[in-house]
Simulated assay, not measured.
Amino acid sequence: MLKPEIDSLVPHVPFNRRTFIKAALGSGFAAAVLPVSAQTIHTDSEGLEAGEIAVHSGDTLVPAYRAQPQGKTQLPVIIVIHEAFGVHEHIADVCRRFAKLGYLAIAPDLFVRQGDPMSLPTVQQISQQILSKVKDEEALADLDATVAWAGEHGGDLNRLGVNGFCWGGRIAWLYAEHNPQLKTAVAWYGHLVGEHTAAAPANPIDRVGDLHAPVLGLYGLQDKSIPQASIERMKQAIAHGPQVARGSQFVVYGDAGHAFFADYRPSYKRADAEDGWRRALVWFKQHGVA
């Protein structure tokens, strides 16, 4: 049985701009977030199969970081959906954290068509050059392909969940509205409302009627980018949505802002991050993803 714990996590050596070199997927950090905090967590890969793999999504070869217990099959599956900085070291580490608890965890690079955010020096440039161009339909198709890959490589798709951060938190909501096979999702500070564009024609609040699984939303009260009013609107929409959707829950941390789980950034709130992590693990277990 999976036990919600993070005892295996140890501090990671901080990175800085001078030592930054783009390496394999899941290595290093984006230039926009350097220097990395000394409290950054590192989880080793002992006992795991971990590293980069490739997923065929239509005509596109999507790189992904995968971690799973060595030599084991029929594993519960967690799709980890990255934030604005792509599949960098933090996202790979989250995959290893899940794998240490018995999951097959895999994080596909959903920016593969738009470019590499790792080398861009500011979040604004990442937003303009990468995020604004990612098509929701392609991201969801890539997730479908990733799920299929997991099912062919040791995963039990009857125990399927997604876990997304920031940009990926929004996509986690959308995926729960897209894939009826999904058991549940955890969305960390993912936007619920927003502008409608050609690339993003609908937001999570627009498709609540399509929710196939309950979602745990983890948010910060001090997050200026996600007003509490938008969370309240989402709660109301869910209350009038499908029965399965009504099992969704929100946790709002009073002292936390955006990216409070991101241990490599100044926004990190350790107590809230650890509480959210434990809640996420319990949530997955309660909904059959364990």
Rank of each mutant, 00 (worst) to 15 (best):
K22H: 12
E274M: 10
I171R: 02
V77F: 08
E83F: 08
P214K: 03
Q74I: 01
D255F: 01
G288A: 13
I126W: 09
Y103E: 12
R265C: 09
L61A: 08
I53Q: 04
D144N: 09
Q286W: 01
V208M: 08
L221D: 14
R278Y: 08
A198G: 06
G288L: 09
W283V: 04
W283Y: 09
Q129F: 05
Y175L: 03
V62M: 06
D109Y: 03
A256I: 10
Y65K: 05
F260H: 07
L211S: 06
L110D: 02
C166A: 03
V134E: 03
H56Q: 15
V162W: 01
Y189K: 04
Q286D: 15
K133P: 00
V162P: 01
D206R: 03
H191Q: 14
H212E: 10
G194I: 06
Y175W: 12
P76K: 02
V251Y: 07
Q129C: 02
S248W: 12
E46F: 00
P76H: 07
I205V: 15
Q129M: 14
I205W: 09
G47T: 11
I91V: 15
L143G: 00
A290Q: 12
N16V: 05
P117C: 05
N179I: 04
G257P: 04
Y253Q: 09
I79Y: 01
A199C: 12
L61G: 01
V94L: 10
S27R: 14
V36W: 07
D275R: 12
D272W: 05
Q228S: 06
P242S: 15
